[in-house]
Design a binder for these strands. Structure first.
Lengths: 259, 259
DNA sequence: CCGTGCAGGTCGCTG
DNA sequence: CAGCGACGTGCACGG
């Protein structure tokens, strides 16, 4: 790993030209201004920030606050580095969409270059697809007597998550959503109408989600559709909720909220 | 700024306990394993990563690739740092939703602590609300003779972005969307039906967006609704598109794509 | 504090 | 390559 504190702009430019477009992780901390132009247009005045260029060319400019970067480029097709009067300019261009991020550094407090090794994959449980699978393996989590007919059934209106029949053999359209909103209701309604055209007769529509706001539930039921809740523990056997109720002895709370 | 290369776990723990819960930006580069439990559950095996704790307590764990962090916590309510056998553990707990991120460090290549100063605000132009305003100021960007009646008009089906009358005095419901999809069409249709109930007579529905896929446009027109495109230059006077057509002499392309 | 909808969303999968 | 939908979406704004 290479790390230079308070590099001259020449040193920094040399390092950047050497490593920016290769599979290295490059970090530059310093005082900068950032412009973006593309799908929208943005301007960010001088401030101290952390620039991160990742090994797949992704570029992030993080300010001292917030989860999200102030500016970014998910994939850069071409970098440009120049030394201007009293500063260093880094431009990151991207095609499709055509966009450019320009970072003007006034001061650089340090710069590091490294190749990080990380082969491991992130394993996540609890996505929507896990709910689909849980339903297929265990249809009674929806309701007793349910029989799954088809998953990902294609219709003119799109794909139905789960298509089934209930204990009375009535067709059931199930829409699974982690975070349902009003549009989810419209979408389900659209599916039910579509299936109604195809199969005639009564069709039930069920929205399955971890939770549903009261207003959306009303909106749903006005349309003759139903809601069924699903718990994480039902779909992830090993799941245990986080218990924050008693705090440990050794923990300490941020003072961020105090000012 | 404080920067320690290859700190001992004791040194690191001391620094973390001192600064994690205060308004400092803390960065730790090293080999770690990460677990998350909350709305879902995830496990990330050993790998070299960059941990960033921001001044508002936001926590990011970035791998060497991708725009998005591997794990994160947008707001941390309580940190915990412990030294275990041959390692250092950092836990970040959050309430609402109850979630915890645990980072187990096996090796730390460096750690920095700093207070970044960044008062400047990010100014972005080109959001949906900018399009609303552009329409209000310049109704002809929708079509000649249009008169805006009301913005954000409330109906039972939600808020209509722009409510207007055309040159023949026919009511027009305009839905503005930066990234329209099928649901946008349904939403617009709902609004038109709602307005139809209220005002009777012919009602036009217009979807205004930077672009619209052909299939969605068909879907829209099947329902008797219309599409009007909007250009960035129409809503941001100073906007100039990025011209990537000819590459500069001094730029250089990433080799990332080559392997 | 919760509910609601936008985002330069990003990302991954499928046709 | 574009279309389409999920996301531990995050985030800002309004009730």
């Amino acid at each position: 790993m290479e790390l230079i504190q308070n590099p001259s702009f020449e040193e920094a430019a040399e390092l950047l030209k050497e490593y920016l477009s290769r599979e290295y992780t490059v970090q530059v901390n310093g005082l900068c201004t950032v412009n973006y132009r593309g799908r929208a247009k943005s301007k960010l005045d001088r401030g101290e920030r952390i620039l991160l260029k990742k090994q797949d060319s992704a570029l992030l400019v993080h300010g001292p606050e917030n989860y999200q970067p102030k500016n970014w480029q998910p994939e850069v097709d071409s970098f440009k580095v120049e030394i201007e009067e009293e500063g260093l300019v880094l431009k990151a261009l991207r095609r499709n969409p055509d966009e450019v991020v320009e970072v003007f550094f006034d001061e650089i407090s340090f710069i590091t270059v490294d190749q990080l090794v990380d082969k491991s994959e992130l394993k996540i449980a609890g996505h929507e697809v896990d709910i689909h699978e849980a339903i297929e393996e265990n249809p009674e989590i929806v309701e007793d007597g349910l029989k799954v007919v088809e998953r990902e059934k294609e219709t003119d209106a799109g794909f139905i998550d789960v298509f089934a029949r209930d204990k009375d053999n009535v067709y059931v359209v199930i829409e699974v959503k982690r975070n349902p909103d009003y549009n989810t209701v419209l979408q389900l309604q659209r599916y039910v109408e579509e299936i109604d055209d195809e199969f005639q007769g009564d069709i039930r529509g069920i929205l399955m989600a971890p939770k549903l706001s009261e207003k959306i539930q009303d909106y749903l039921e006005e349309r003759g559709l139903e809601f069924v809740g699903v718990e994480m523990a039902q779909i992830i056997p090993s799941y245990e909720a986080v218990d924050n109720s008693q705090k440990g002895l050794s923990d300490f709370k941020p003072s961020h909220s105090l000012e």
